[in-house]
Design a protein around this nucleic acid. Structure first.
Lengths: 208, 208
DNA sequence: GCCGACCCATGACCTGTGTCATGGAAGCCC
DNA sequence: GGGCTTCCATGACACAGGTCATGGGTCGGC
């Protein structure tokens, strides 16, 4: 078998689910012009691998145990500038897409896309192009930016675990009254009757 | 290339995430003795496919948009008794494992397992054996049955969306005081400071 | 400079929620 | 049947949480 192309696109694959990562590797191995040169099971490992192998394209899962795939992408863009980042995610949240693009991510697609799309996206991104899932893009545009102020988002984030107000107040270095106020404002903006569904709504939009 | 074995294990693959499903198909295609004969993107489709192709083994994702992978497995066991069901899931919850085994599922493994495990499990199950992830099994045994009474579980289920007590009371045909009492009891049993983290804990154990 | 808009922070309220004590109904063992 | 346990249901009470009005800080426009 002769090499179809002398230089193949070199891929870094990062996903904490070993089975899925291996399966994606098998899928990409079917493409003649693509080569998986490194795999990682965590964000930290992905960064180390990127440094060591300087791949052309990094495919990162959005949710990994140690850190957000987006923050990994952001750091990688500055550390290994020749490497383009592509985010793959199970739940396509518009807010995540927005944050990802701001972080310098070149491709963003949900796991619901058909098989051929992934390799196409890899090629597109490697050529210097960008790709975001059309449906997700539409949602992101229609959804708009987060209505929450930064403190509101912070406090809501801390409230996500169901923690009592006082604990949130301590961790945020605020008065309990202030915490309640921020939570109340956030819930009102999100059209939620209480902070718990507010957390739910904000999560669904990717705003926290 | 000569056929290594005249009859290969015939697989049905069901997962709503097209990319993952295709990737798993690519992974399984590497095995000489395994053949993916059908794919489905939903629970209903999986059942239809099972009827049409009568596969040897069905690999089902736990969470699918229309229905639970476990209920699909239960129905399939009665409709196509020659087909063994294997459940694959992202989050390994002990309660789900228990329910799955009661439904007649023959294999249960989280997506974090290494690549080779899946094909091994397929072969094991096809030989008439069973397989459950050891770590998950340990957790299921140590966790034991749900400590919640049926009403407690019902009420906690209704509280899952963050609904106020009065709404829960109406939907459960109960007095608000009774609802509070059940929620309080459930939270105490689960070691949770309030019902919201109780919902979280119960979900994590697969008890609601 | 002044003014207005916005975010942030706080404390005083009032509603919602968790806790407790109580009592009735069903099942089980002696 | 008597006694016991368990679950279910209810209401009274105390506290956490959501709502409101207020004031200080910072930014941008006139």
């Amino acid at each position: 078998m002769t090499e179809p192309a002398p230089t193949r696109i070199r891929i870094l694959l990062a996903d904490d689910e070993n089975l899925i990562r291996s399966a994606l590797a098998a899928l990409l191995a079917l493409e003649a012009d693509i080569e998986v040169v490194a795999q990682a099971a965590s964000g930290a490992e992905a960064l180390a691998m990127a440094r060591a192998h300087t791949p052309d394209v990094a495919i990162l899962d959005l949710q990994m145990p140690d850190r957000d795939g987006i923050s990994v992408a952001a750091e990688m863009c500055s550390v290994v500038p020749t490497c383009s980042a592509v985010i793959v995610t199970g739940h396509g949240r518009a807010g995540h897409l927005k944050r990802a693009l701001e972080a310098g991510v070149r491709g963003f697609l949900p796991k619901t896309v058909n098989a051929g799309v992934l390799s196409d996206v890899v090629r597109t991104v490697h050529r210097g192009g960008r790709y975001v899932d059309p449906e997700l893009a539409a949602e992101a545009i229609s959804a708009g930016d987060s209505p929450l102020t930064s403190r509101e988002a912070d406090v809501l984030e801390l409230a996500a675990g169901g923690a009592p107000v006082e604990e949130i107040a301590v961790r945020a270095h605020l008065s309990p009254g202030t915490v309640r106020n921020h939570l109340s404002a956030a819930a009102a903006k999100l059209g939620a009757p209480n902070r718990h569904v507010a957390v739910d709504v904000a999560r669904r939009h990717g705003w926290i």
